[in-house]
């Protein structure tokens, strides 16, 4: 019984240390994780602390605040790096069916992939645009807060071992060509067709601390908002709403919804299942 109490005490200390660490990271490095859901963040921090052989988060904080290389590692740890090409094929299918026909009526299109991580989903969308004949008149902004992830994204080189899965996704997503036309295999790497990159600008942008940088017709931000608390979710959604043109589209992850959000009334539902929304012409914002 006493050991439970002692363990609960240590847990409480660890939770306090986590709060202090996030505050310190914000003050020293400007990255703001204070409104991220805590369970995930804390798990990642404790994992890193253990890997470094340190016996407390406080000891880890001491090092982190003094060594920028440790901070780089933490950025990697805290960024969402699990993604795939044509993840959730029905999402792309719905984009082709519901959104692309409208985009086709525009002379020039801007899209924003927010929280693009290592770029797999951006290239997937670039392929979709190419097949729909929209690549020449589309500007794609792809942003993430993690420079290391953007580095990978810019290169567009992915493990060949994933291509089988991506090919299956592509086929299910309504792709009209042969997926193998979009990459060259070299040893264990798949190098994506460099022409896909021509209309993509990869840039550092932090959804928590940075603001709107362009007016766009479509924002895709998938499986990013699930990491945020309600307050931060609303703040970011507000920014998306400001960034979208009237009638602009918003595509979220399959478990993310506008239903209970502060911007609910500014959007109408295009595809409830695939979480695709459209900004109303007469919106409150």
């Amino acid at each position: 019984m006493d050991s439970h109490k002692q363990n609960a005490h240590l847990l409480h200390v660890q939770d306090v240390e986590t709060e202090l660490l996030l505050e310190a990271i914000f003050r020293v490095y400007g990255y703001d994780f204070r409104n991220y859901n805590r369970a995930h963040i804390k798990r990642r921090i404790v994992q890193r602390q253990n890997q470094m052989g340190l016996d407390s988060i406080s000891a880890f904080q001491h090092l982190l605040l003094r060594d920028k290389e440790v901070m780089k590692q933490v950025l990697k740890d805290l960024s969402i790096n699990v993604t795939e090409m044509f993840r959730d094929p029905p999402f792309y299918e719905s984009m082709r069916k519901e959104v692309v026909p409208v985009l086709k009526t525009y002379p020039y299109i801007k899209t924003w992939h927010a929280g693009c991580s290592t770029g797999e989903e951006v290239y997937s969308f670039a392929i979709l645009l190419k097949e729909e004949g929209l690549d020449k008149r589309t500007q794609i902004y792809a942003t993430d807060f993690n420079p290391a992830a953007l580095e990978v994204a810019r290169k567009g080189i992915y493990p060949i071992s994933r291509m089988k899965e991506y090919t299956a996704n592509y086929q299910k997503s309504g792709g009209t060509q042969s997926f193998s036309d979009y990459f060259i295999a070299k040893y264990d790497a798949a190098i994506l067709d460099q022409s896909l990159r021509h209309n993509i600008v990869f840039a550092e942008h932090n959804l928590v601390t940075d603001s709107v940088f362009a007016e766009v017709n479509l924002i895709i931000c998938r499986n990013v908002l699930i990491y945020f608390d309600k307050q931060l979710q609303n703040k970011v959604l507000q920014m998306f709403s400001e960034s979208l043109t009237k009638n602009g589209y918003l595509g979220l992850g399959s478990k993310e919804s506008l239903m209970f959000s502060a911007v609910k009334d500014e959007f109408e539902v295009v595809d409830a299942e695939q979480k695709i929304y459209r900004k109303k012409i007469q919106s409150a914002g």
């Binding site: 939770d15 859901n37 995930h40 969402i80 699930i226 478990k255």
Partner: peptide, 21 residues
Amino acid sequence: APANYHLLVEKDKKLSLTVDE
């Protein structure tokens, strides 16, 4: 827990989902 998402419980007894490894 939804398929393909981790399900976690937050301190304030709310649920959270992640797409971690």
